[in-house]
Design a protein around this nucleic acid. Structure first.
Lengths: 193, 193
DNA sequence: ACCTGAACACCGTTCAAGT
DNA sequence: ACCTGAACACCGTTCAAGT
């Protein structure tokens, strides 16, 4: 009964993150992961119940990282500039780590641990929007911005914009369009009060 | 050398579409497809070079169907109403056939045959936008609307809107925000000319 | 307590053999 | 000309056997 541990939860998650970051979630096979940490594939099941639980762990780390980047983007001087910065930070993260970004939506988490981390990630956007809009509209506005960003980023990373022109310009067009609509909604509401 | 054909390209594609529609692209295994058309899996390779080519065929059919739905939505009376109808038709298609809709973006086509079908699908949106906007802005506007719609639909079908409230209201908020921004851009441009 | 090889039920795909 | 079983290299996962 020597039982010398050759690896650890942390090492496995770090290796898994490295593989997903470099080659995408599809490349994360239990065999490849075992090779990376010096253990046979079945040994991984002593520490994680299944492959999806490992992806949960990677996703949790990605959410923490994204959340702190978004918090740093939020400076509080001007609502409008914070919105532009939040959107830009989100998009920049996706550009820097496309495979990890894909995990945010592609991977359906196993446990409820991810839920809180997801809410933390959207908190900066919500608090910025609350400086402009009444609570009733914050949710709608946040959903439509995240939808635009997620759709745009997914499409550009997939190479879905094939008709030429500047993709960056289309992005700025979209963000500005959304912000001007929000500004209008905020003013309209102020008048109505 | 009797060589009695037990199936055909058309029957295979129809069966593949049925499987993807009901259970998603992941459920389309060569074995399941073979069972559906009364043939062993290896026989399918006499008609299609690989599984992805079969998904290409399914996708082509989906694009034709989506295109004709979008054309019907475009009535030409009012630009604004056509935009609302085009967006609504697109979303309704995704709601009615979520697994087939997912194919539009999840499946990377093998051949170039899909490219033309994709362009046909966005043509109605482009022609409607051209009644409002100068050519230079049509591309940006189309990209930002499709990005919003695709992102929103992906998120709602994935169950990503977990914070309560009305998802339909958020959708209408987003579409109206985008249209009002476009209207502003169109007016600004008219003045500048 | 941890690691291992062997095994199971699945994939997509290839190919020689049948008719 | 088309269909087949057998095989290959992969999956995720289970489990009895080793230390």
């Amino acid at each position: 009964m020597p039982a010398v541990a050759k690896t650890s939860d942390e090492e496995i998650l770090a290796a898994a993150r490295r593989i997903v970051d470099k080659h995408g979630a599809d490349a994360l096979s239990m065999q490849a992961l075992g090779d990376e940490v010096g253990v046979r594939a079945p040994s991984l099941y002593k520490r994680f119940p299944h492959r999806d639980a490992i992806l949960d762990g990677v996703l949790a780390g990605v959410l923490v990282e994204l959340t702190s980047a978004l918090r740093r983007a939020q400076r509080g001087r001007s609502t409008e500039r914070d919105l532009v910065r939040l959107a830009g930070t989100y998009r920049a993260f996706a550009h820097r780590r496309p495979h990890l970004y894909a995990l945010l939506f592609a991977h359906r988490p196993t446990g409820p641990a991810i839920t809180a981390a997801r809410e933390a990630a959207v908190a900066p956007l919500f608090s910025t929007l609350r400086t402009w809009l009444p609570d009733a509209q914050v949710l709608d506005a946040a959903r439509s911005l995240v939808a635009f960003l997620h759709g745009f980023i997914t499409m550009e990373l997939d190479g879905a914009f094939r008709l030429g022109g500047s993709v960056d310009r289309a992005y700025r067009f979209g963000v500005r369009a959304w912000i001007s609509a929000i500004r209008t909604a905020a003013k309209r509401d102020t008048i109505e009060r």
